[in-house]
């Protein structure tokens, strides 16, 4: 009760400042969002209305830019991105979930060292691995092969997935596993019958984060793919040099390419932070 008494006057006096702080929050937030808003706005315009001087707020609505995006043939690049990001995410889950199990509920000896090793690989600069990867793929004649790129995407995000899944599995009571063990369940059964069903939220969050990182990856993609296996970001970079007036088209393409990640990010927003901080922050 005393809490209420002490708190009340404080809240009353700051009502005005609270209101202005909220307004300030909205102002700053909308300012941040404005480039996205503007891109979205002009993606629904004809080229003549998109890049004008001075900028126009209102112009006739059209869907032709989005139609063009798919006509020009962005489809095959979006498909490549989908193969690489969904494919690698599935493989990552298959490898990372058992590993995370071994490192969490009844952790094996030296699990801390193993975890540190995984973490350390996440910090290695990809640019320093680019040459060997390029040479290996060239030697194997796998340059411009989307599945080869997928394998390296697995390696890039596997450590992150192990850390994330471990942070979710840690919360599961070990009694659950011990009971299953007493019933004579094999490790595989424990994993797929007992643990996978109850870890679905963690698995979903991990997949979304792996998906985001892979979809947006550029450095490796631009250097080991040609026309055949180019992913969406690689296509985007090449897209610009083609035409003169292209603001509206560029906007539509940027939105289409970013949309899967935007949706994934919005869906995973509560887990996004633990993914970005490698499980250090919940």
């Amino acid at each position: 009760m005393s809490t209420l008494k002490v708190n009340k006057p404080r809240q009353k006096t700051s009502l005005a400042s609270r209101f202005s702080l909220s307004t300030f929050a909205w102002f700053l937030g909308l300012l941040f969002f404005f480039p996205v808003f503007w891109t979205l706005l002009i993606s629904f315009r004809q080229e003549v209305d998109a890049g004008t001087f001075p900028p126009k707020w209102i112009a006739p609505f059209t869907l032709e830019n989005y139609e063009k995006v798919f006509k020009v043939g962005a489809k095959s690049f979006l498909l490549n991105s989908a193969i690489a990001s969904i494919g690698s995410t599935i493989v990552i889950l298959a490898l990372a979930f058992p590993a995370a199990y071994a490192l969490s509920i009844k952790p094996i000896k030296k699990s801390k060292d193993v975890l540190s090793f995984f973490l350390s690989t996440k910090f290695l600069p990809p640019i320093a691995a680019l040459l060997p990867i390029y040479l290996i793929l060239k030697e194997l004649q796998l340059l411009d092969n989307i599945f080869a790129l997928t394998v390296f995407y697995v390696a890039m995000n596997l450590p992150l997935a192990v850390w994330l899944l471990r942070s979710f599995l840690k919360e599961i009571p070990r009694e659950l596993v011990e009971a299953a063990e007493l019933d004579g369940a094999s490790t595989i059964k424990i994993l797929y019958r007992v643990l996978v069903p109850i870890s679905m939220p963690g698995i979903a969050a991990t997949s979304l984060i792996c998906f985001i990182f892979t979809w947006n990856e550029f450095l490796l993609a631009i250097n080991v793919t040609g026309f055949g296996a180019a992913t969406a970001p690689v296509y985007l970079v090449g897209f610009v040099t083609a035409e003169g007036l292209f603001f509206a088209q560029l906007s539509a393409v940027s939105i289409v390419v970013s949309l899967p990640v935007i949706i994934a990010g919005w869906a995973a927003q509560d887990k996004l932070v633990s993914g970005l901080s490698l499980g250090a922050v919940k």
Binding site: F33, P35, P233, V253, W266, L272
Partner: peptide, 14 residues
């Protein structure tokens, strides 16, 4: 949080 989710190459082009 949306700016962080835009594909970096797309953000750079915009």
């Amino acid at each position: 949080i949306t700016p962080f989710l835009i594909t970096p190459v797309a953000a750079a082009l915009i």
